[in-house]
Design a protein around this nucleic acid. Structure first.
Length: 261
DNA sequence: ATGGCTAGGCCCCCTAGA
């Protein structure tokens, strides 16, 4: 089973490149972030025409996540537990999908950016990642394959930035942000791409200001695997060619894993 | 310390991204 994540930076602006990538990459499950539209505006028919079921947790203008799956989805659950009434950001969507040999729980994650830091946005980012950790811990009790994937907005290590010093004051590279991601991994979740590619220099995001041409990138889109999912890990990759494949690309590219299930 | 670019909105300028 091929499982992929991609921050599309508006699904309406990225519909044609998204359909082209899906037809070429042939993922079984896709988690999308920053769809930037309400559920009713999500172009579900276009993905259904390619053989995918759609689950959408959208929001006007900002955020928004979705799951596409060739197999029907069960247990579709929007929102991360532990939020209060003031948190109306659409940043989390979970579902259970079926592979050839068993079930996999998948989640589409769009963690807050957190800039500027320090400040309330950074506090929100850290609180949100802590809520994710609590939920990720609870999920482990089921002892099932789980893929928590998306835009974590965290650069894990210096290996994951072309110019680490440039990010020293950015919310994405603060020690607190990196520790928040590490705490989830320390529960027993594996950063699938890092496990397969221990060296640095692989990125999933380049800004729109000339960074792509200089390969001044960062790796902030991650697939975290539960122990049961890590047992099934066969391959992982970054589809960096997607950045050059259309006139108006997203600033992120897809990341994927192949699981033996 | 800042700007560069992109997207959406409710709409010719703002927020937000990272």
């Amino acid at each position: 089973m091929k499982v992929a994540t991609w921050n599309v930076n508006s699904i309406k602006a990225r519909l044609e490149p998204a359909l082209a990538w899906i037809q070429q990459a042939k993922p079984d499950v896709v988690a999308l972030q920053e769809i930037k539209c309400v559920d009713e505006k999500f172009p579900a028919a276009e993905f259904e025409a390619l053989g995918y079921n759609c689950a959408v947790h959208g929001q006007k203008t900002y955020n928004g996540v979705a799951l596409l799956s060739r197999s029907p989805m069960e247990d579709v659950t929007p929102r991360l537990p532990g939020g209060d009434d003031t948190d109306d950001h659409a940043r989390y969507l979970e579902a259970l999908v079926t592979g050839k040999k068993g079930m996999v729980r998948v989640a589409a994650i769009y963690a807050p950016n957190g800039n500027p830091q320090p400040g309330p946005k950074f506090d929100y980012k850290l609180a949100w990642l802590e809520r994710l950790r609590v939920h990720a811990k609870a999920l482990l009790a089921n002892e099932e394959p789980i893929v928590l994937m998306g835009d974590y907005n965290v650069i894990p290590t210096e290996l994951d930035a072309d110019r680490p010093k440039a990010w020293a004051k950015d919310a994405l590279f603060q020690p607190e942000s990196r520790a928040a991601l590490r705490r989830i991994e320390n529960l027993g979740y594996t950063d699938a791409f890092r496990a397969q590619h221990p060296e640095g220099g692989h990125y999933t995001f380049w800004d729109y200001f000339g960074s792509w041409e200089r390969n001044n990138g960062i790796r902030i889109d991650h697939l975290l695997l539960s122990p049961q999912a890590a047992d099934l890990l066969k391959a992982s990759g970054i589809d960096r060619e997607v950045r050059g494949a259309s006139e108006k690309p997203s600033d992120h590219v897809p990341v994927w894993v192949e699981l033996d299930i």
